[in-house]
Design a protein around this nucleic acid. Structure first.
Length: 273
DNA sequence: CAGAATACCTGCGGGC
DNA sequence: TGCCCGCAGGTATTCT
């Protein structure tokens, strides 16, 4: 999926079209996403007005006058805004029709995504409540990482990808940030100094911000709300570059598997502590 | 308890 | 051309 920059790009792209708009109709063609879609979803959303769209981690939160609906894009999810009712394709699972005639269409081939409803405060929702801090917030600092990593043996790559610690750092950007910070992805977190963790936090923020600016990373599936690609893939230094030379030192980049996710790094630039 | 493995699902590219 | 394998941006749940 979409990692955080792709979700943020989607948010910015759709916000103006759906906020303050009343929902006229909801069409659900496939209910079996990561969790089955609430059988009452259509009636919950009928005539509801979207007040605001925000993002928490990789969840898109649509607050309405009746409650909040939530989209998660999983690995292959996408939200598009249509200005006319195009015939649905195979993986177009949800359409939300608005009073302004626009249609929000959710597409997701692998169906790891989610479409949820809560009438309560969305921040009390069990999936949202337990999330770690936002990576672009001031709370996310080297000091914070140092504090929560004392005596922990877990590999730094897994650690920064753990959404209970910090949200929104996915496989691509984790690899990129570790490379920029010269940290080997398998380094046990307890071995990293405050200085190194501070540098890592900085590179995570830079990578995420740059990816947002360039509209996210398109590898194969990801397209923004207008069906356009993101261009951060042009900036990738290690992800998808195994066997090619390191942009810093020329060493051939190595690929390994951490927690079943492929990881590319430079043996010369990223030393194991 | 921490940390690792598994599960969900479809599509695509590469090798034969 | 077609089949089989491995791999893909996530993350809750189950295991050791």
């Amino acid at each position: 999926m979409p990692e955080l920059p792709e979700v943020e790009t989607t948010l910015r792209g759709i916000k103006e079209y759906v906020e303050k708009q009343q929902i006229i109709k909801v069409v659900i063609r496939k209910r079996t996403l990561r969790w089955p879609i609430d059988l009452e979803m259509e009636s919950h959303l009928q005539n509801a007005t979207v007040l605001q769209v925000t993002r928490r981690a990789k969840y898109l939160l649509f607050s309405t006058d009746k409650g909040t609906f939530i989209f998660h894009l999983g690995m292959t999810g996408r939200i598009g805004i249509l200005n006319k009712p195009l015939p649905p394709k195979k993986h177009d699972h949800v359409d939300i029709l608005f009073a302004n005639k626009l249609i929000l269409r959710f597409t997701d081939a692998r169906r790891f995504g989610a479409f949820l409803w809560t009438a309560e405060n969305v921040y009390n929702h069990y999936l949202i409540k337990s999330l770690g801090i936002e990576p672009l917030s001031v709370q996310f600092s080297g000091r914070y990482l140092k504090k929560i990593s004392e005596n922990k043996n877990i590999a730094i790559k897994r650690f920064i990808m753990d959404s209970k610690k910090v949200v929104g750092v996915g496989n691509i950007y984790a690899a990129e940030a570790l490379f920029l910070a010269n940290i080997h992805p398998l380094t046990p977190v307890k071995n990293l100094s405050l200085t190194q963790l501070t540098k890592l936090v900085k590179t995570i923020k830079v990578v995420l911000k740059n990816a947002i600016i360039t509209g996210g990373t398109t590898l194969k599936d990801y397209l923004n709300h207008e069906g356009k690609k993101g261009y951060f893939y042009l900036h990738l230094k290690v992800y998808g570059r195994a066997g090619k030379p390191c942009v810093k030192c020329g060493h051939i980049l190595t690929k390994l598997c951490i927690a079943n996710r492929s990881t590319v790094y430079c043996k010369a630039c990223q030393t194991l502590l």
